[in-house]
Design a protein around this nucleic acid. Structure first.
Lengths: 342, 342
DNA sequence: TTGTAAGCGTTATCAG
DNA sequence: CTGATAACGCTTACAA
């Protein structure tokens, strides 16, 4: 078995030599084939195949001064919400003939910073990011250095970047209005930490709807969580179960679907009927929400549209000299299912 | 509000001019700082900050002849199994001081091919891929052109690449042995198409265990699916429910967890008790498996280890002249939970 | 210790 | 329509 192919790859020069033309002609075949006679072109193309020529994108970008790549730095690749957003970006990128690279910060600021630095060194055309902290200085630094950057699913209130997000205050409202409509008068808000803008907004919307309905604020019980994960949802369920009967909420609004699924599992697993004894509303409407054993009522965000819009915005910033930053907000929608409709 | 920063970014030359040194010195500050006097170095570093210098990785790689990036082309970013594999790769890559780009083929051969082509044009150090079709010619083409390539979670039987996978025949065995142990004498295998190597192997292992137990092959009923998704799991549930009582299996082994979750949901949703009337075993042990309303018995694959090993293999192929292709196989493990333990 | 110059692979310009 | 040449930003001998 022979070793790997030699270290140096074949270049336009090699192709030119093999085809008996100058390298300018090879470049023309690549970039303006119409300027080359059919015969020559064919000879060059044959040489390319024979030599296994692969264009060096780095050199090309170096010369051109810009690349054909954008990137999305995800907050949590394990959360289906973000992979759906990524899907939307991918489709938009494909339509614009751009390639998309995905990176996962996994909620870690250090990893996020590393990815961002690497991407700007790669001179990608633009960066989409769902940041750990939308206020973080790294983001400004990237933008200041000239790489277009769009914030996805978060808002930066100073308008320093384009951003696309969903109206989470409204989403929180929808969830609680639904529960109030179904007759619940003691409801838990499960989620945290409130320092996350999303969580804060959903809570604010929830509280607004609650008081608008004339209900006492103390009957909207906050069950704080450390993260937005299934495991934390389970432990929230234990906390709820520990409350004395009269103080125990008859419904819970969870800040995302992972929490809701954890809560659902803990509840049914320990014998509480859902929605009979505890109604549950999630947030995001990920695929697993509908697929849960008790299909989950959830607030749906237009995930793919979110991604597609973000892609359009970076592209505009990268190519349109008259670009102005925009904050685009989408409207969420409540999807009622069995977990509240018993 | 001023427009974006000027098109041209500051280069080593600019930094050199600003710091009053030659560009060679700037490069030394970047690459062999010990060769530069402290005073000069500091002057250069200050200039870098002031000018907002960002190293151009494309140019660097061009000159160096190699990049510090590897990539993983995922089969389905929406399947938590693959994001966990990616997590393992990311950790290994970080340890080796490499950056990882993720791409998602979304089960589409055309998208896979596009990503692979783009990556080899980017001259990444190596490519990890879970291919739509491990036998596809594109893979050979990549390798022939000199980019190290490792197949993840699939096997290429001709040994043309390194690969890491899990012993799926054994996994299938474990699942069915467990069910037989629990007394089941009529079992469904839910999964398909059998043209997918994984599915085929799991089925073969299941059948082997079944006949080894002295049970008649026709009592291991195949319920074919078109894809490995939650939706197909649900429709498999409907097919099972439609079978006349005596012909209806008392347990199902699903080719992955998404199918199992769909089946679980359809079953409990239509009033069948799990595991009382139908025991269910999944495959992959994704996080949602344990979090399902009836926690799912599943065959666990060492996902992170799979990813980490794959990263080690590409790295070896990229850097070790004596590299020889290896097929690494991991051993799966059955995790028994409520869905079979009633 | 610092500076100079060549070259990585590509593309665009401009003269033939 | 073709071919020589410069330039993109960086690294690395090698010279000063």
């Amino acid at each position: 078995m022979p070793g790997r192919p030699a270290r140096r790859r074949t270049s336009v020069t090699d192709v030119a030599a093999a085809a008996g033309v100058s390298l300018g002609t090879v470049s023309n075949v690549l970039n303006r084939p119409e300027r080359v006679s059919a015969a020559t072109r064919e000879r060059v193309e044959r040489a390319m195949v024979e030599l296994g020529f692969v264009r060096n994108e780095g050199a090309r970008a170096l010369r051109a001064g810009q690349s054909r790549t954008i990137a999305y730095v995800m907050l949590d690749a394990g959360n289906p919400f973000f992979t759906d957003v990524a899907q939307g970006i991918e489709d938009a990128a494909e339509a614009a003939d751009l390639s998309l690279f995905l990176c996962n910060s996994d909620n870690r600021p250090d990893r996020e910073a590393k990815h961002l630095a690497h991407l700007q060194q790669q001179r990608v055309q633009g960066i989409l990011v769902t940041p750990v902290d939308p206020g973080a200085d790294v983001l400004d630094t990237i933008a200041r250095h000239g790489t277009p950057l769009v914030i996805v699913d978060r808002i930066r209130h100073d308008g320093a970047f384009c951003s696309v997000a969903v109206d989470d205050v409204l989403g929180g409202r929808l969830a609680v209005e639904h529960l109030v409509d179904r007759g619940h008068r003691r409801v838990a808000f499960v989620g945290g930490p409130l320092s996350i803008g999303q969580v804060r907004d959903r809570y604010d919307g929830a509280l607004a709807a609650w008081t608008d309905a004339g209900l006492p604020p103390e009957d909207l019980v906050v069950v704080p969580t450390r993260t937005l994960t299934v495991a934390e949802g389970r432990s929230a369920g234990e906390q709820l179960a520990a409350l004395p009967g009269p103080r125990r909420p008859t419904a819970a609004f969870c800040a995302n679907d992972l929490l809701a699924l954890g809560l659902l599992q803990q509840s049914t697993g320990s014998g509480r009927r859902v929605p009979g004894e505890l109604a549950i509303v999630g947030y995001d409407d990920i695929e697993f929400a509908a697929a849960a054993a008790v299909p989950l009522t959830s607030v749906r965000q237009p995930r793919q549209e979110l991604g597609a819009m973000a892609a359009d915005l970076v592209l505009d910033e990268a190519t349109n000299p008259a670009h102005a930053h925009r904050q685009v907000t989408f409207t969420p929608e409540l999807v009622a299912r069995a977990s509240t409709l018993g």
